[in-house]
Design a protein around this nucleic acid. Structure first.
Lengths: 144, 144, 144, 144
DNA sequence: TTTT
DNA sequence: TTTT
């Protein structure tokens, strides 16, 4: 039956993306991203709560994430929730919930201003780079 | 800093909501909800993958969830991702990711068609009930 | 610069889709879709306000819309806002705002229950039809 | 029946908000906001298309928009589509589609960096200002 | 009328 | 581990 599983996040990267190249030719980039909520506690004090999201970007998006995303950057991520299980060191089943990215946009800065952009020539290349990346859809639905 | 943490789900309830009344007067309803993805595997066979989401609805939304939501119903849920930790039986820290609902709508049927609606008088009351519920915002941000 | 233009609608079709085949081989389906808001007026009376949305679906989505969507059906539409101008009969410039669909899902029923499904053989074909349609992205960005 | 009418925009303001104070005590801020799409035309040339959105923010949001939003700023706007009619100078019925804002967030800059922030004292006040504004919901549904 |  |  028809269903919808959609996530929209705006926040800052907690670390540089880490890219792994899988057997079979697939690649995946993982990074974390923080969103913040504010509320008043029972004493009326303003409290901040940070939520950390695990983002995974596959194939073409992985390469773009590796190339353009850096710790501290503000990004828009659209994707879907996926919980997968794995075995921990004691061989117990554990669960981790991730956001599989379908679209990533760089916000709030010139892409040329990326912290690790090395040199002038590269920087101008980056400055002209697109700042919205979308997953290629035929590839978007491989089993993983 | 400004951030956005938004989830939009359409799917079917996996079970009736379970409501707990907390000390301090708060109440919370928990239920699960399935969304489905379809993709072709490497052999070209159509594969279905079901994702189960843990939904929590607080206070006024909890009462409405208890009253109107039943296993199998199709619902729209808008909310935000929250991961909380707890101690398991071996006293190890575990994490669970939930969707805290801000809005719930009943889809695909008149609410009067709810499976457990008992009697005529009640059913007509239900039939006139609103089918979109929103969290009252001042209450939406208590610490939990 | 990075930007986002996203619309999410759930409502019922006001009429069957009308499909036009354009020179150049493109096709487009147009239909209207209603959403409802409820509020209390100053006298405290509950008032309903219906908003009518103009939806346009292109190419592959147009064909699927023509085949599966019918007046009265409840659908999920994800898309983007587009305002275009045209000349009216008095040759004055007028504007119309439409939602260009990127994804359409049938809600609240089996597709086999579509009102105009003609015969058993077709109905079983429809019953197995996918109920979520997505625009093919390479085609999603032709000028129109 | 349950329905959803949701818009999510990220873009830049085309002009400073204009605030009007209505009889009855309500106020409304109007501004425009641009989003951009890129596609390749039939010759393979990269083309940019700009979409202009009319945003209206009511009551508390109007005041915050007036205070904190300026031409050129990048913002996140969440809201709903509303088409209203009016009579033009020739007394003909015309339609305008607007986005009624429910939430506005400032993106991509320190709020203290607002172009028209006048002086040090004010700037520090702005720097501590919240950067996400939400409509108060009880007020969100007055007839207009 | 924004932004790159 | 981000940002303010």
């Amino acid at each position: 039956m028809a269903s919808v599983n959609k996530v929209i996040l705006i926040g800052h990267l907690g670390k540089d993306p880490e890219v792994r190249h899988l057997e079979g030719g697939n690649s995946v980039a993982n990074f974390t991203m923080a969103t913040n909520e504010y509320f008043k506690d029972k004493q009326g004090t303003r409290v901040e709560r940070t939520e950390w999201h695990n983002i995974s970007a596959w194939r073409g998006l992985a390469e773009l994430a590796e190339k353009y995303l850096r710790k501290g950057q503000q990004v828009y991520v659209e994707g879907r929730i996926r919980t997968r299980q794995y075995q921990d060191k004691e061989n117990q089943t554990r669960y981790i919930t991730e956001i599989v990215a379908d679209e990533i946009s760089l916000l709030g800065q010139r892409p040329g201003a990326a912290p690790t952009t090395p040199a002038t020539a590269d920087a101008s290349a980056v400055a002209e780079a697109p700042v919205t990346f979308r997953q290629e859809p035929e590839l978007d639905q491989l089993p993983f």
